[in-house]
Design a protein around this nucleic acid. Structure first.
Lengths: 153, 153
DNA sequence: TTATTGGTTCTGTATTTGCAGAACTAACTG
DNA sequence: CAGTTAGTTCTGCAAATACAGAACCAATAA
């Protein structure tokens, strides 16, 4: 597949987006390429060529993405190449994990509340309030998915 | 205020947590200190002493936190020092922003779908599904806050 | 006025990051 | 067997990061 300027520009923006999320630049670009690529399956050297980077960099980035469970590869009979693809399949699971990860701050807030004295009750009260909300939020996540299913038809 | 080992250890863990979120180490430690500190208001040089870092580093980190709207300072009559505190007050707003930020990936997914051909309809279908969910999710956020308020009594 | 306090800005640097390039391995091919 | 292909691992380096230290500034105090 040959990439148009529009493709390249979109890949670039998806890359930057993921960089801001803490990933290294190339990892973000690869995510972009795998998403934009027609077949959704891209060979190792197609990545190397399209992104203009070294094999070692691609190898490391793909190892990382696989370790994080965000990408997989498949092989084809009589072809030693590996074809890499995003695991969009379980976006539900991924998204759930990301939400729970956000709510992880609750753990710290609760620990902070245990350690704090009563010298600033207003501060404590607000933190308790926030912690309560995070607990509520976590509980509500499954229901959210259910409601989505229902209204989807 | 004198910090116990428990305080220091908690500050450290809160620091690492924020580092993983992409912030620079000292910024994370300062967040920890401001949360753990009894009064919730900490002077510039208390930060310098307790964290054992230079004035310049603290100055830059505080400028950053203020720019991000995560911390503020207040002064006291007849006292030139600045007392810094976290803005736990509007956690609601912050949290809402963070959720919307997550959902921002929808924008990219939609752009990707526009660019993609129909060579891999299953892939496209899943992405469309994910995009739909993200749209649903964004719409549901305000209702989530409302329900929290109600069940809170 | 000079001295002190509270904080900022500038300059330099040790550490870390992100990648290139080469050497390497493992599997297939002729 | 030697040669090729597909990818990995190792070594090194340019650039970015995160901070220290010193110079600096602005406001108050003496």
């Amino acid at each position: 597949m040959i990439l148009t300027e529009k493709h390249k520009e979109l890949i670039e923006r998806i890359g930057v987006f993921h960089e801001h999320k803490g990933m290294q630049p190339l990892v973000g670009r690869i995510i972009g390429l795998l998403l934009v690529h027609e077949e959704g399956e891209v060979s190792f050297d197609e990545i190397v060529e399209n992104l203009g980077v070294s094999k070692s960099a691609v190898s490391n980035a793909l190892t990382f993405l696989q370790a994080k469970g965000r990408c997989v590869y498949s092989t084809r009979p009589g072809d030693r190449k590996r074809y890499f693809a995003m695991k969009v399949s379980d976006w539900r699971e991924d998204f759930e994990k990301e939400l729970e990860n956000i709510a992880e701050i609750q753990k710290f807030i609760d620990e902070v509340l245990e350690v704090r004295t009563n010298k600033n009750p207003e501060f404590n009260c607000r933190m308790r309030d926030f912690s309560d909300f995070l607990g509520f939020f976590k509980k509500e996540i499954p229901a959210l998915f259910d409601r989505f299913k229902k209204q989807q038809v």
